[in-house]
Amino acid sequence: MSSEGAFLRHRLPGDVTPVDLERLLWAVVILALLADVVTTFVGLHIGLSESNPAARGAIESHGLGGMLALKGFAIGVGLVCRPLLEREYRAIVPAGLALPWLAAAVLNVYTIASVL
């Protein structure tokens, strides 16, 4: 038996592959989306207004369904563009979705807290 060309690959606990990172970031996308939608509607319920014109139009014309459709469209664009990137860089797609939605949710919480 020959061991030529064979090697053991050990994964350390902190050893994160690009695929692992992308999976984690897609989970963050879902959490960020939910946080943004929930905090937006809580803010609207207490009398605040939506500052994003696209989201405001979607909410005014179609309510929660419009907001979810807008978020779904953004995710769809990300999923269509994802294969255009090399595997090592694909995590940028969920990061690019999650970061603004997380920032919006944090801003929503701050604004809601300042009103209450």
Results as ranks from 00 to 15, higher is better:
residue 1 M to K: 12
residue 2 S to M: 00
residue 3 S to Y: 15
residue 4 E to L: 13
residue 8 L to W: 15
residue 10 H to P: 08
residue 10 H to F: 14
residue 10 H to V: 14
residue 11 R to V: 09
residue 11 R to D: 14
residue 12 L to P: 13
residue 12 L to H: 15
residue 13 P to K: 01
residue 15 D to V: 08
residue 17 T to A: 06
residue 18 P to L: 04
residue 20 D to L: 06
residue 21 L to E: 06
residue 22 E to V: 00
residue 29 V to Q: 03
residue 30 I to L: 15
residue 30 I to P: 15
residue 32 A to E: 00
residue 32 A to P: 04
residue 38 V to D: 09
residue 38 V to C: 15
residue 39 T to F: 13
residue 40 T to Q: 03
residue 46 I to P: 02
residue 50 E to L: 04
residue 50 E to D: 09
residue 50 E to F: 10
residue 52 N to T: 01
residue 53 P to T: 00
residue 54 A to H: 04
residue 56 R to S: 11
residue 56 R to D: 11
residue 59 I to M: 12
residue 60 E to W: 13
residue 62 H to I: 06
residue 62 H to F: 15
residue 63 G to H: 01
residue 64 L to W: 15
residue 65 G to M: 02
residue 65 G to L: 00
residue 68 L to M: 14
residue 68 L to Y: 10
residue 70 L to Q: 00
residue 71 K to C: 09
residue 72 G to C: 12
residue 74 A to H: 10
residue 74 A to M: 03
residue 74 A to W: 05
residue 78 G to N: 09
residue 80 V to A: 12
residue 81 C to R: 09
residue 81 C to S: 11
residue 82 R to F: 04
residue 83 P to Y: 13
residue 84 L to S: 13
residue 88 E to T: 09
residue 89 Y to S: 12
residue 90 R to F: 14
residue 90 R to K: 11
residue 90 R to I: 10
residue 91 A to D: 06
residue 91 A to R: 04
residue 94 P to W: 05
residue 95 A to Q: 01
residue 100 P to K: 03
residue 101 W to A: 09
residue 101 W to I: 07
residue 104 A to G: 05
residue 104 A to R: 02
residue 105 A to R: 03
residue 108 N to V: 10
residue 109 V to G: 14
residue 109 V to Q: 07
residue 110 Y to R: 14
residue 113 A to H: 08
residue 113 A to N: 03
residue 115 V to H: 11
